[in-house]
Design a protein around this nucleic acid. Structure first.
Lengths: 202, 202
DNA sequence: ATTCATACGTACCGATCGGTAACATGTCAA
DNA sequence: TTGACATGTTACCGATCGGTACGTATGAAT
C-alpha cells in the first residue's frame, strides 16, 4: 500500500522551508471537505489519508476550523482564477464574460458527483457568523456580488444592482441544484436563462 | 425549571393513542435541525430540550437519520401549504402565482436569522444518495421542478422547461443567498428578476 | 388485587470527536 | 561533535457521538 512513497531527500522544498506535511494535509482536507462536507470529516481521517499524524496537523493549523478556513482560501483563489479566465476571454464584453463563465458552471454542475460551491456549502454547514470558514465564504460572496453588479452596470442595465443580484441568484441556484439533481438537472439551463435575463434588463 | 409542566391527565391525546414524547421530540428536532443544521445537533441535546430521554426518541424513530427525515416530511408539508396558498391567490394566473410566492420568499429570505430551505440544506449536509433525509429532500425538489415547468407551460413560454428551470434556479438562489447575505442581500430581488425572466421567455 | 400492555427513565455501551503532552529523528551551522 | 530547530511519532485526554439493555410507573380490564 504505502510501499511506493515518492519522498526524495535530495529534492529540497521549493520555497525553502515549507513543511511537507502541511501541504499534504491541506490537499487531502480540500478533497475530503469538498466531497463530503466539513462536519462529516474528522481530523483522524484527514491525517490517516495524508499519511501523517495529528500533531503534524495541529502544528500547521491551530484547529480544525482553521484548516477548514484554509481549504476555503485555496478554493477562493481557484474560483477567481476560473472567473477571471472567463473574463479574459471576452475583453470589454461583460455579457459574453458572464456567458462564458456560466456555460462552464452549467457544464460542471450537471456532471455526476458534482458537489456545488465549497463556499456555499460551508456557509450552510456553519450558520454562526464568527466561524472562520464562514468568514472566508461570506467575503468571497460579497466580492462576487460586487463584481456582478459592476458588470451589470458596464452592460448598461437599467437597474444594474437588480440585474447583478439576479445573476447571483442564478449562479447560486446552479451550484445548489447541480448537486441536488445531478445529471439532467436545471443547472444546465443557467447560461441560457442568464442571457435571457440580461436581454430583458438592458 | 421543570416545575410548571402542563401535563393534564384528563386531556386525552387527540388521535387516541399517540405518545406525547414523540411529538415533543419532533417539535424540538425541527427547530434545532432547521436553525443549526442536522449534523450540528446531537440526539442528547434534542431529548434534553424536549424534556425526555433517549429511549423515548428511539422508540418513535429508528435512528437519528430517520428523525431527520421526519423533520423534512413535516417541512415538505408546510412548504406545499405555502406554495399552494400563493397559487390559490391567483387562480388561473401562473405568472401572478409565481410572483406571489416569490414576493413572500424574498421577504422572508432577507430577515435576520433566516436559514434558507431545510430541504436544500439537508441535501448539502448529506451528499449520499441513499440517506433518508436526502431522499425526502430530492423528492420535494423534483416535484417543485415539475410544477414550475408546468406553470411555465401554462404561461405559454416558448421553452417552458427552460423557463421552469430558470425559475427554480432563482428560487434556490434566494434560499441560499438569504442565509449567506442576511438583510439587504440579493434575495430581495428574486421576484423582480423572476418576472423579468418570465417576460423575456413568453 | 392481579394482570397485562404501554410509555417512560436509569445507567450504560463502544466508537469517535477535536486536541495535546512527551518524546524521537533528521538537517543544518558552527 | 555539538547544539538548535523543525518536523516527525506514540500514546493519551475528556467530551460527545449515536444507540441500547433493562428496570419502573401508570392505567384499563379482569
Amino acid at each position: 500500500m504505502s510501499g511506493d512513497n515518492n519522498i526524495d531527500p535530495r529534492i529540497k522544498d521549493a520555497n525553502g522551508s515549507a513543511p511537507r506535511a502541511a501541504d499534504r494535509i491541506l490537499d487531502v482536507a480540500r478533497d475530503l471537505f469538498y466531497r463530503n462536507g466539513i462536519r462529516a470529516i474528522g481530523v483522524d481521517e484527514i491525517v490517516r489519508k495524508a499519511g501523517v499524524t495529528k500533531p503534524s496537523l495541529y502544528r500547521s493549523f491551530s484547529s480544525k476550523d482553521e484548516l477548514a478556513a484554509s481549504y476555503l482560501r485555496v478554493y477562493d483563489k481557484e474560483f477567481w482564477e476560473r472567473f477571471d479566465a472567463a473574463v479574459a476571454q471576452h475583453p470589454g464584453n461583460p455579457r459574453a464574460q458572464i456567458g462564458a463563465f456560466l456555460t462552464r458552471v452549467g457544464k460542471r454542475a450537471v456532471k455526476p458527483g458534482y458537489r456545488g460551491c465549497g463556499m456555499t456549502n460551508a456557509a450552510v454547514e456553519y450558520p454562526e457568523k464568527e466561524h472562520p470558514a464562514r468568514l472566508v465564504s461570506e467575503e468571497n460572496k460579497q466580492e462576487l456580488r460586487r463584481r456582478l453588479r459592476a458588470m451589470a452596470a458596464e452592460m448598461g442595465a437599467k437597474r444594474p444592482d437588480v440585474l447583478g443580484d439576479g445573476l447571483l441568484l442564478l449562479i447560486e441556484g446552479a451550484y445548489i441544484s447541480g448537486q441536488l439533481f445531478g445529471p439532467g438537472g436545471p443547472a444546465a439551463a443557467v447560461a441560457e436563462n442568464a442571457d435571457r435575463l440580461i436581454e430583458a434588463s438592458l
